[in-house]
Design a binder for these strands. Structure first.
Length: 360
RNA sequence: GGAGAGGUGGGUGAGUGGCUUAAACCAGCGGUUUGCUAAACCGCCAUACCGGGUUAACUGGUAUCGAGAGUUCAAAUCUCUCCCUCUCCGCCA
């Protein structure tokens, strides 16, 4: 979430960001609670200071065997007042955090304002689809003919969206994963093999909880969540830590299977490999100095593009408009590869800046 | 899953109810001195939040000794729950 201090000092910037992302503006409400909160804190801490003083006095009186009754009576009163204020503060705190969680990250000025995918801007394009003199089959027909992916037995074993890669299919998956990881290592990323399940604190840290719980598979008995992306465990590596500036940038790459419930998906979106409950992904994460984060975003995009170029896949880069970005993002590019079989662009990679939104 | 021992500033580690403002040492930073990769000595050295102050230097307060709750005028210290680490036992597709 955003820093409350930042919201306090730049309410108009925050409101503008909310408007651009089409979220509900609750800034004024938040600032009202913020003023109340600080007033309560101040009054509470004055009383606590008094409590500490009186307690010392009581100790002294008792040691000197003097009458401590008046001090004890005052203590009684002070503690009652503290209790009242603490209770009130707790309520106000809850309101503050509840609203804070509804305030999205602020889009970068370079991001086009828009409401639908049609407002995304084509940033660049690379390569030309090959010219062929036959009608290409969609991949779900090809893989069946080649016997490299078995969707039906995946359904038997687990359910729809859990394919079995087989023979050359399995080797292709492994080769691509290796290729991506090796390339990332060459670009200075440290390879990570993270846990595939995370606890509630980690899922909250990257914004999956509280409101996106339904998108994840949950092991309720142990309160663990199957990761929907390696972003979750990898970003949480340095949760609750302060990074030394001279160590930046910290660059990680990691391959994991990703698990997504994808409830509500239908039609052509779920055909074949288009939207799976389990899929493989290599994630790149950089922790960088705030002053360089937009340059680093561009270099991250270049790193991702170089992979597609080496694979010889024609693609385009989209700069996503304000409402097509996620809640936590300030700027986002999508890389889309042209699918000959499906005759449409398919997202294969997404590159985002979160600034400090996930830092607290 | 069971039994036992533990969890204290960056590190080691003292502290069993008020005399702790968490000792001491190590590491780190600043300085003094000495004729040389070094030593001795002095000083500084946690974080967050709320104030004051010129959005400064600095300064007042509160909280934090694994997390949370409780007992008490007062908790690192006593009680309870949970988490984690170590030792042993059990289980182990």
């Amino acid at each position: 979430m955003l820093d409350i201090k930042f919201i306090r000092e730049h309410p108009d910037l925050v409101k503008d960001g909310i408007r651009k992302k089409g979220e509900t503006d609750r800034v004024d409400e938040l600032l009202g609670f913020d003023v109340k909160r600080r007033d309560l804190i101040q009054r509470g801490e004055q009383l606590k200071s008094r409590r500490n003083t009186v307690s010392d006095e009581i100790g002294k009186l008792k040691r000197e065997k003097k009458d401590a009754a008046p001090a004890l009576a005052e203590m009684e009163d002070v503690k009652k007042q503290i209790k009242t204020i603490d209770d009130e503060l707790k309520l106000v705190d809850e309101s503050v955090s509840a609203i804070m969680l509804t305030i999205p990250n602020i889009p970068h000025p370079s991001v086009p304002e828009g409401n639908t995918p049609a407002d995304n801007v084509e940033f660049s394009k690379w390569g030309e689809p090959p010219v062929i003199d036959f009608a290409p089959k969609p991949h779900w027909e090809l893989v069946e003919k080649l016997g490299i992916i078995d969707f039906e037995r995946g359904v038997k074993i687990t359910g729809a969206g859990f394919p079995i890669y087989k023979g050359q299919g399995a080797k292709l998956q492994r080769a691509l994963i290796n290729f991506f990881l090796d390339q990332a290592s060459e670009h200075g990323y440290t390879e990570i093999e993270p846990p595939l399940m995370v606890n509630a604190a980690s899922a909250t840290g990257t914004g999956q909880l509280p409101d996106k719980e339904d998108l994840m598979y949950v092991a309720t008995k142990d309160e663990l969540y199957l990761i929907p992306t390696a972003e979750v465990p990898v970003t949480n590596i340095h949760r609750d830590e302060i990074l030394v500036e001279s160590n930046l940038p910290v660059k990680y790459c990691g391959y994991t299977p990703c698990f997504r419930r994808e409830a509500g998906s239908y039609g052509k979106d779920v055909r074949g490999l288009n939207r799976l409950h389990q899929f493989d992904k290599v994630e790149l994460v950089k922790y960088v100095h705030p002053g360089t984060s937009y340059n680093e975003l561009e270099s991250l995009r270049a790193d991702a593009e170089s992979l597609l170029q080496k694979l010889g896949l024609p693609y385009r880069v989209l700069l996503m408009c304000t409402r097509d970005m996620g809640f936590t993002q300030t700027k986002k590019y999508d890389l889309e590869v042209w699918s000959m079989g499906q005759k449409r662009w398919l997202e294969v990679s997404s590159i985002s800046n979160f600034e400090a939104f996930q830092a607290r």
